[in-house]
Design a binder for these strands. Structure first.
Lengths: 344, 344
DNA sequence: CGCAGTCTTGACAGCGCAGTCATGACAAGT
DNA sequence: ACTTGTCATGACTGCGCTGTCAAGACTGCG
């Protein structure tokens, strides 16, 4: 009775009702809903009118049970940064809403060892159907994970893939070019001695950023006087920043491969009795939420993380991920307050 | 064929298979799986053995279709802070995993006006069944939202409810007591002139924190020389902090009702040429991720947000939310580096 | 004009499970 | 011993939809 119809998340009408209202068969409604071919315009119009009239929304559970799709995609995280995670999630979520899909979040720990990865993935797969997975760094470059998903014939789309880019769909920016742009910017401001705070070794994009920055500095004839790992974290950024500042002569500009470590570097600078940007210029990467949670506000590279996630999810949902498309999105420099010409 | 069985998220076996293996009826397996009463120990044991042997995992879609539960709970956010959001999500997620449930995230905008809220909720409800919703501040105190959910007979559990606490299940801390504790701590350190950075007006917990702090200061005979809204944001904290620092005499200690605005207050202090904690002590609230992304590290109140979310979700899943339990969890002060005795 | 080929539509089964009702077994009450 | 009641179990239906197959309505071509 009423309980049942109320409990149905959607309004009330079933496909049956729509078919009756439109005077067509059940299957014809299904065809229209699923945009299958071989449907006449007249029929489509009738069905669509009935759908609108009855305010029909398909029942996900029934579609899943009867069909072979689950209408769920997953995002795999192996990333400690809440800001990054949130943005990816928001982007994927948007894509899901647009397509009436559901989003599933799963955390995975790739630092535990190789067989661990497979075990975790297996447990995730058996815990519920999924039409595909969005992979974020660093798991986006984890060969075990890719192998496993392929072996189980589960589609996936990678965000910011570094290695093995031909293996599957991916969305990224040109990290190398972006880092080179940072080098150019600092060079133009007059800097000649540089330090770099690199990211985790297994993080592919971090690697590309390092290459892009270091390469361009070399091309320009600048001096790279220090290179320390900031581990992509605030604490790591403090420690690494302190290391860089002890150098003699010390760099006048530091490029941190993400915003968190850049924020740490700013703190290290204050603690060393120096001021950003008067004594040291610092540039981050990501334009994450931290960039505006530090003082001075961080000059950083904006990358459209949310957009990347959205596109990756859309590829999965629309099934184009199987064609292994690679999409490159734009980045740009966000000039704020952490860069100035070097001290005289 | 193989495709079908592979696409089933779980291994392969169906309840049918389990029944055959155990030599019992389909329905008996269902009874064991759902922990229904009137099942003999012997039967339970047989079924459980078969489940283990076949590695059976129930199919969520089929359960949803046949039954009246959806095995999905939702979290409603109306909160700009990624840190808070992430913690809540993690807690709910854990509860879901423990009970083989799925989590659904929904954003809602309560600033748009009253009818907007109902519209958004309606659209969320019709987009898919949900066995219940976890409400976060400030929507946790939104009467429209509560009314709507009750009218549609959708269970909900509230995180940090302020007003109308008897209306439904809730998990919270004693915000008032926590803020009083902060006052005590600062008093003990020797402070006598205080400033407070309040939160958004519609945020119930923020309100309680203000009351707790202001009340205790009055009891102790301290002077509250300034009260400005920090809007729970970094930018707001900067502006409000500057306001507080312009006072004459200025406070020697500032309590910010969340960490983000406390971080802003720290920046405001540096910009005023003062040092934390030598010139000014600052205390935050939440022990969020920002507390350790600023320098000095922030002394703040830890509240178990993840735990609160976990418990709220569990109430929903286990169906105890209908009994309207109110659970209060513990908080504690996290002493870091932003508090010191006042300058002589 | 007739037959093969294509497009369009519908009938029907069944996905995996929970709900309903029926049945048999056994304890308690008269 | 006979009813009544409670427990334990099973047969069966159908949730709302998609996949399969078949049949009708066309088209084009010899």
């Amino acid at each position: 009775m009423n309980t049942i119809s109320r409990i149905r998340g959607n309004g009330n009408a079933t496909m049956q009702d729509v078919a009756a209202h439109a005077g067509v068969s059940l299957k014809s409604v299904s065809r229209v809903i699923n945009r299958e071919p071989h449907v006449s315009e007249k029929l489509r119009a009738k069905v669509e009118a009935a759908v609108a009239a009855l305010d029909y929304v398909p029942d996900m559970a029934a579609r899943t049970l009867a069909g072979s799709r689950s209408f769920i995609i997953g995002v795999l995280f192996d990333n400690p940064s809440p800001n990054y995670t949130m943005k990816v999630q928001t982007g994927c979520y948007r894509a899901c809403v647009e397509h009436q899909y559901h989003l599933r979040i799963d955390n995975i720990d790739t630092y535990g060892g190789t067989s661990q990865v497979e075990q975790q993935l297996a447990s995730i797969l058996r815990n519920g159907r999924c039409d595909g997975f969005v992979l974020t760094p660093p798991i986006t470059d984890n060969a075990q994970a890719l192998d496993f998903l392929e072996a189980h014939d589960v589609p996936y789309a990678r965000i910011a893939p570094d290695i093995m880019q031909d293996r599957a769909a991916g969305v990224m920016i040109d990290d190398r070019a972006a880092a080179a742009m940072v080098a150019d910017h600092l060079w133009t401001k007059g800097h000649r001695r540089f330090g770099i705070l690199t990211g985790p070794a297994e993080h592919g994009a971090a690697h590309l950023r390092r290459e892009g920055f270091v390469g361009r500095i070399a091309e320009l004839g600048g001096e790279l006087c220090g290179e320390v790992s900031g581990g992509f974290s605030f604490e790591g950024g403090i420690a690494a920043g302190e290391g860089l500042l002890r150098l003699d002569p010390r760099p006048t500009a530091i490029f941190a491969c993400n915003d968190d470590s850049a924020a740490g570097a700013i703190v290290a600078t204050s603690r060393a009795g120096l001021t950003v940007p008067q004594d040291i210029s610092i540039v981050g990467f990501d334009d994450s939420w931290v960039a505006k949670s530090v003082w001075p506000y961080l000059t950083t590279v904006y990358q459209p993380i949310e957009e990347m996630a959205h596109d990756a999810a859309t590829m999965l949902i629309e099934g184009t991920a199987r064609d292994k498309p690679l999409r490159t999105l734009d980045f740009h420099l966000v000039e704020r307050d952490s860069v100035a010409p070097p001290p005289a």
